[in-house]
Amino acid sequence: MSIVRLIEADAACGRKAQALAVLMRAGLPVPDGFVVTDPGTDRRRVSAHLSRLPARAVAVRSSGLSEDSERASYAGQLETVLGVRTVDDVLAAIRHCAASAGTPRARDYRTRVDPHGDPTGEAADPVIVQELVEADHAGVLFTRDPRTGDDTIVINASWGLGESVVAGTVVPDEVTVTPPADTIRVTLGTKQTRVDLFDHGLVRMPVPTADRARGCLTVDGIGRLVALGRRCEDLFGRPQDIEWAARDGLIWLVQSRPITALDAPRTPPTEQGSGHLLVTGVPSSPGRALGPARLVRSVDEFRRVRRGDILVCRTTDPAWTPLFRLAAGVVTETGGVLSHAAIVAREYRIPAVAGARAALTSIPDGTQITIDGARGTVTGRRS
């Protein structure tokens, strides 16, 4: 088993680890860790490296050799295990993450988004083991608006660990910062739940009503995030997709990778489609599509989806990605523009509307609907 300190990571450690090393060497705030480039079972060496990390738990994340490229983000397609504590559990998580590039969903994604990559997957990807920031609030920052390609910075934020934002299980706050005056616009999300680390593991729990109604970020916090985002873009010379976590007033960077699909064809928002306005949500992937609504509530209903359907669901996780090859568009009840599902929808060049409350009860199954991913609307006939 080969182990490299995170600050020393190079191309052999995968793009995610290499980018974090660049940030660390530039003096930016990145949690410490190490990279396992040859997953095995050398418990002693892993234990020695873990003992140097002061956090009470770590995050174990894939750092695939194909991951985080300008063409293919692999957003959510490879594994991450959060809140890992013991040496044995870290070893198990390393093996799990290292093997994830060879899963059917990763192969399916690779053939669609990165057809020039290895179609058989990589037998054992490098894996990052990194201090887990037990965040008060966390999220994602894009240094360009992925819906328009302009230089407006977009931030999604929610309470607790960033898993809620990237997994699309909440409607996060959305903050936009538009130059040259850096005009700030805040749209509050509902932020219904949060994920936190407790002694017995990760727990998802309801967010108190008062916290749902207020923003996660102060004006000062927004300013510091924007400065960090621009510093990352300057370092890498291209627009960046950044994951961040804040605790006790400090902001930590846990990812910086190229924003994908900025070259996608874009059409301006159209007038509202024919029919009644059924739901509105967060514009998440531009484009417009007409097709039958297919309501899917669980993996058991995947077989109902046909090519050209518009997928309507509460949320998606990576297991749902193969449906994106069939769907003409995606509507979710939760999530935001910077969630993994929204990123993959843009890479697949299909329109998406996230955070469309009550979509599963407002959109009749099987009826013809029109989704406009630039406007964030779904129109059609009411039952």
Results as ranks from 00 to 15, higher is better:
Ala72Pro: 02
Thr169His: 10
Asp114Leu: 14
Pro180Ser: 02
Arg185Glu: 15
Leu141Val: 12
Leu132Tyr: 04
Thr178Asn: 06
Val154Cys: 01
Pro146Gly: 13
Leu82Gln: 03
Asp125Tyr: 00
Gly139Ser: 04
Val113Tyr: 00
Leu132Cys: 06
Gly64Pro: 02
Gly160Trp: 11
Val87Gln: 14
Val90Thr: 10
Trp159Pro: 01
Val154Thr: 10
Ala124Lys: 10
Arg61Val: 14
Gly121Cys: 10
Asp108Thr: 04
Ser100Glu: 09
Ala59Phe: 01
Tyr74Arg: 13
Pro179Lys: 11
Ala72Leu: 02
Asn156Glu: 14
Cys97Asp: 11
Ala59Gln: 01
Arg85Asp: 01
Pro180Thr: 06
Gly121Val: 11
Ser66Leu: 07
Ala98Tyr: 04
Arg144Ile: 03
Ser66Pro: 04
Ser100Pro: 05
Asn156Cys: 15
Leu82Thr: 05
Ile153Ser: 04
Gly121Leu: 12
Ala93Thr: 05
Asp68Val: 04
Pro126Val: 14
Pro179Ser: 07
Thr176Gln: 10
Gln77Cys: 06
Val133His: 11
Ala167Asp: 03
Arg107Cys: 07
Thr178Met: 03
Ala59Trp: 02
Thr143Ile: 08
Val84His: 11
Glu134Ala: 14
Asn156Gly: 05
Ser66Gln: 07
Asp173Ala: 06
Glu174Trp: 05
Gln77Pro: 05
Pro146Ser: 12
Arg85Met: 00
Ala99Glu: 06
Ser73Pro: 06
Arg144Gly: 01
Asp136Glu: 13
Thr120Arg: 08
Val113Asp: 09
Leu141Trp: 07
Val177Ile: 11
Thr80Gly: 09
Gln77Phe: 08
Leu78Ala: 03
Ser164Met: 12
Ser73Met: 14
Pro115Met: 04
Tyr74Pro: 08
Val127Ser: 01
Gly160Thr: 03
Ser69Thr: 15
Glu131Thr: 08
Arg71Gly: 09
Glu79Asp: 08
Pro115Ala: 11
Glu163Ala: 04
